[in-house]
Design a protein around this nucleic acid. Structure first.
Length: 456
RNA sequence: GUCCCCAUCGUCUAGCCUGGUCUAGGACACCGCCCUUUCACGGCGAAAACAGGGGUUCAAAUCCCCUUGGGGACGCCA
């Protein structure tokens, strides 16, 4: 059977982590099975949907590298279809018009609450045949009585829900827009979706959608309801308990692959492996290795995953991402290699390479003060003289030897030379090791920076 | 309240389906030590879990039931 999947966000805000993970699972599953991946925008809430959110979602997905084979299909552009089907349902006696106003329903809900009961629509219009002219109406689905609604979930097995816990739910709102359960089921059937992978919060909605599938005379897809991602406080992820948007991560120097790796690993596993390339994940992904229990979002793990991927990233790729200029004479590859080793994110990495951007470095007062003593000046001068013996700074080993023999000769501690040297050469407290720094900037820049300091 | 789902270290998880190899493995974080040229990186080590109670069985983290706990749904939100 051909695999067709979809990711169906609603454009009512930026992409949150749970949605992104759903997208990732769908993506991995589809690519693994050489299927078709569809993007569908569920914007049937006129009030909350916005073009801004839509663009933001599209941008985030693009940045993450999650690409689609079809779409985006926009539900608000398919309204005629939903309306026609709703009308057809009415004609067939599967649904009916309900003229009850929102105010009336509000009242029913309030009195139900007073009696400590749960509101349920009293089916007032279910069997009425009159159509009061000029009044707003909704179309409700005729939910059958005491019927077992069954479906299969690859993660949770056979699920059985009795229709009596369901209401005569609305399928078409009074503004002519479909409700979620209706349009989702229609699109999933019309787009021939074979597998629905989505959050567990949709598990109880599924019964309603099954009812729609049945009425449409279509076989429902195979479901996989993935567990939720929770915040540190074990409640639904929100800004308060640490949830961020994809834009936030981008700003904080997190690589797309790190997010994908971390999120995929939250709820999915392959033995003891923690770090995966995209290709590996596609190769290894399997619905059977998903976890059923909810997972708590842990930023420090993400940070570790990110630093691991930074270590692995190709320099060519890294240069593109950093959008950074290197001063000529800088050994760019060596600089990148050294910086990658210890950076926890791209911001830190960029910061540690600041000394590679221009001919000179700027020093703040505190730094200047720490290197302006007579002893330091002499030491640096001596080291400079010593360094003249070396024709090339290309090899880190040579510099190391140079340093060691210098320390021996002068009977100095590493600290006494390396600390001021680092400040003079980089103007920073965050940077690669001192031998690497010297090698990276090369003899020319080294000489220039040292001379400038000695002339101060 | 009703219905549905879930339950292994603080966190993510392996093991569960196909009971014995589990005095429960790995990773992140934490703590300690080492390396050291700041910040870091790295290396080594420690501590840390089968929610509770009943069954079934020679044997249960693994199968069954109950309790408890957590999550979700019950919208003219998706």
């Amino acid at each position: 059977m051909d695999i067709i999947t979809r990711f169906a966000p609603s454009p009512t805000g930026s992409l949150h982590l749970g949605a992104v993970r759903t997208a990732i699972f769908n993506y991995l599953f589809t690519r693994k099975n050489k299927g078709k991946f569809i993007l569908r925008i569920e914007d049937t809430d006129q009030e909350r949907s916005s073009l801004d959110s839509l663009n933001q979602i599209l941008d985030s997905l693009r940045w993450l590298g999650i690409d689609f084979d079809e779409g985006p299909y926009i539900q608000s552009e398919r309204l005629e279809n939903y309306r026609a089907i709703a009308e057809e349902f009415v004609k067939k006696g599967l649904a009916y018009r309900c003229y009850m106003t929102s105010e009336e329903i509000q009242q029913l809900k309030e009195s139900a609450q007073k009696e400590n009961k749960v509101y349920k629509y009293p089916r007032t219009w279910r069997d009425r045949t009159d159509n009061p002219p000029g009044l707003d109406y909704v179309i409700r689905f005729k939910t059958p009585d005491n019927k077992d609604i069954k479906f299969y979930d690859t993660l949770r097995g056979n699920i059985n829900i009795n229709s009596d816990v369901l209401d005569d739910f609305i399928i078409l709102k009074s503004d002519g827009y479909p409700t979620y359960n209706f349009s989702t089921a229609i699109d999933d059937s019309e787009m021939n979706i074979s597998n629905i992978i989505r959050g567990e919060d949709h598990l109880s909605n599924t019964s309603k959608q099954i009812l729609i599938f049945n009425s449409l005379d279509k076989t429902p897809p195979t479901f996989t309801h993935v567990s939720m991602i929770l915040g540190k406080d074990k409640s639904k992820l929100s800004k308060r308990n640490g949830s961020k948007s994809i834009e936030d991560f981008k700003k904080e120097g997190v690589l797309p692959i790190s997010i994908i790796n971390y999120l995929a690993r939250l709820g999915w596993s392959h033995g003891d492996q923690e770090i995966f390339t995209l290709d590996e994940m596609i190769e290894l992904f399997n619905l059977d290795n998903l976890t059923k229990s909810p997972a708590i979002y842990d930023e420090s793990k993400l940070s570790w995953v990110n630093s691991s991927h930074i270590k692995n990233i190709e320099n060519k790729e890294l240069i593109k991402i950093l959008e950074m200029d290197f001063f000529h004479g800088i050994d760019v590859n060596q600089a990148l290699n050294a910086a990658k080793e210890k950076a926890k994110d791209l911001l830190a990495l960029k910061e540690s390479l600041k000394f590679c951007k221009s001919e000179e470095v700027s020093l703040d007062n505190e730094m200047l003060e720490s290197i302006s003593t007579k002893e330091v000046r002499e030491t640096i001068n001596d080291f400079y003289v010593e360094s003249l013996k070396l024709d090339s700074f290309e090899k880190v080993e040579d510099i190391k030897h140079l340093m060691n023999s210098f320390l021996d000769k002068k009977n100095l501690k590493m600290k006494q030379v390396a600390l001021p040297l680092r400040i003079i050469l980089t103007g920073s407290k965050v940077s690669p090791g001192i031998y690497e720094i010297i090698s990276i900037i090369g003899k020319e820049i080294f000489n220039r920076r040292i001379k400038k300091y000695l002339e101060l």
